[in-house]
Design a protein around this nucleic acid. Structure first.
Lengths: 341, 341
DNA sequence: TTGAAAGCGCTAACAG
DNA sequence: CTGTTAGCGCTTTCAA
């Protein structure tokens, strides 16, 4: 089945391809009658111009990409949702690249995306969330910026000067800690997250500071890191609860681990928040799905995606958007935190 | 910053572009020494060929697309995960198109994807899940099949003869019903799902049949449809529980609504499964995140995505894959179902 | 208001 | 083993 081109249309309409192109893009005046015949023929053949050819010429593809570590973690679909909505308005479609936290897969995608000439890249998680990103990994994306605009969401690369959108996670952790202190808790723990990620370290640091402000400390035995999964949170919480002396409240690196923590608490016969309070982070849809509903810190996740696309769009259009946009998190108090009974 | 092309490489290496192309694609023998110089120059300039130009010529883009209604519903990320994994192996990247259940958005994407010359499309939800799909919507995708291979996942279009991968949802619903009957339940309800979707109707029909087999029926007051969300499930369940006579078990159209149902049951002071059993569908990660853990029907969600890509790949390569692949669901018994106490 | 023609960057005969 | 050349399907000057 021969695919039909602008030439076929032109021939059938007895005009030149230039004229067809003009009606296609409304890029110059065309006599109404010719326009009409051309449109009729286009309609008749259901002709759709080849975007590849156009992109080759115009050096823009109307495509942006999102690289993220784990689409099954509900935080990321929320970001995507926000991003896609504004991208669509602006005429972009989306490549989605799931890296499963594998750096080599990130590299692979980075290279593919350049070949495919995407107009921009939104990068989340993975290497940009490492407290100590290996220089070659870092360099790779910095290099790439010379060819395609990149914005980092909730991450950073040392000395890169890249555009960034991120939540003030330290402020969020402080908020959550303050909340527990206000409830009268003095023995507070922290669980979850891969040790080498900034998202983990930033929160731990903020919790410690806030506790210190109030003359409290974070006991070593109550600080456990691992990963970001439900099962991970559950294991860590079990470790903590198996100890003789237990905290009365636990902060978690995200909602997943918080849910794991809730499960562990139940397994230990504890009631929430009567015996122990648990606070999550991210305010994913999960947090209202669980019982008791989770007190958590909202990142305004959709907004993160929206701003990422908007920033990208500005870079692409040659404006000079802010290098950094920092979103203020909010505490969302639900039923998993309270006073001891 | 001029982007560098195959011509620049050729000139610098004192060879023709053909030769450079050959080493790029390893498509014909090239003298080792020339190959080496060329590679060195490519390396030096970090040259990456323009995939648009290549695609234009070869008429293949190495890109496939997934159209789905709601990436924040955890069922879909699971499908995507499976699909992406096998797509990557085969050298495809993914467009992700979130339609928010809006048919016009589906149409819009369908058209964009054709313009961008994707090699194939995987379609989930939306119009292909309607018991009564308007002919024009149906026709649109059937027409498109003439230009790009499409496979439908968990859906269908009447008289389309399109390739399909789907779960035997009827079998799944029957399995779940049988499970409840085995536990001694005789008063069983069903909630959730948009009324006009096959995923809802197929399940209802299967539940009725299975009940009938056992001399039981599905009371009208215990059959409520609405949407697929947690909040929706909660509302519907509340309606049921507000009645004088309550069922002892409820089947739900998916895990989201099941979780809503659990919440409603708790709000009514019921214990699960002591007072009432609740069964979900899909076996999303949610089902183990909730307490009590959800008895549900597993769809083997990753597999759905994997098979979709494999089928697409075969169509693209001119093989003739099976028109239909039907996956058998499995019952996963957890803690939300049991005998009355 | 329209047409001719020169590319965009690459691949693939075809010839040598 | 290598070079020449003709496109892939479109947009965009430049002339008319």
């Amino acid at each position: 089945m021969k695919t039909i081109t602008i030439y076929d249309i032109a021939r059938e309409a007895n005009v030149s391809v230039a004229t067809v192109s003009r009606v296609l893009n409304d890029t110059a005046p065309v006599k109404a009658s010719t326009r009409e015949t051309i449109n009729k023929i286009i309609e008749k053949h259901q002709f759709q111009p080849n975007a590849l050819a156009r992109s080759l010429l115009k050096k823009e593809t109307g495509t942006i990409a999102m690289i993220l570590p784990d689409i099954t973690n509900p935080f990321f679909p929320e970001v995507f949702w926000g991003a896609e909505n504004v991208a669509r308005e602006k005429g972009y479609s989306f490549f989605l690249c799931n890296t499963a936290g594998d750096y080599s897969r990130e590299s692979e995608y980075l290279s593919i995306l350049r070949e495919k000439r995407v107009d921009g890249i939104i990068f989340l998680g993975g290497r940009i969330n490492l407290t100590n990103c290996p220089p070659d990994l870092s360099q790779e994306v910095i290099e790439l910026t010379r060819h395609v605009p990149i914005v980092l969401v909730n991450g950073n690369l040392p000395k890169s000067g890249l555009h960034r959108i991120y939540t003030d996670e330290a402020a969020g952790a402080a908020l959550a800690t303050q909340h527990l202190i206000d409830l009268g808790h003095k023995e507070i723990g922290f669980i979850g997250g891969m040790d080498e990620t900034t998202t983990t370290q930033v929160k731990i640091k903020a919790v410690k500071m806030k506790l210190k402000e109030h003359g409290l400390g974070l006991r070593k035995e109550w600080l456990r890191t691992g990963d970001f999964s439900v099962q991970g949170g559950r294991n860590l919480m079990n470790q903590i609860l198996d100890q003789e002396h237990r905290p009365t409240a636990v902060l978690c690196v995200n909602d997943f681990t918080a849910i794991g923590a809730i499960k562990a608490a139940f397994e230990h016969g504890l009631s929430i928040p009567g015996d122990i309070s648990i606070v999550g982070f991210d305010d994913t849809p999960l947090s209202t799905a669980v019982i008791p509903e989770l007190t958590t810190v909202s990142q305004n996740t959709n907004k993160l995606g929206e701003l990422a696309v908007e920033t990208l769009h500005q870079i692409i259009n040659g404006s000079n958007p802010k290098k950094q946009i920092i979103l203020k998190p909010e505490l969302v108090v639900r039923s998993s935190s309270g006073t001891l009974v």
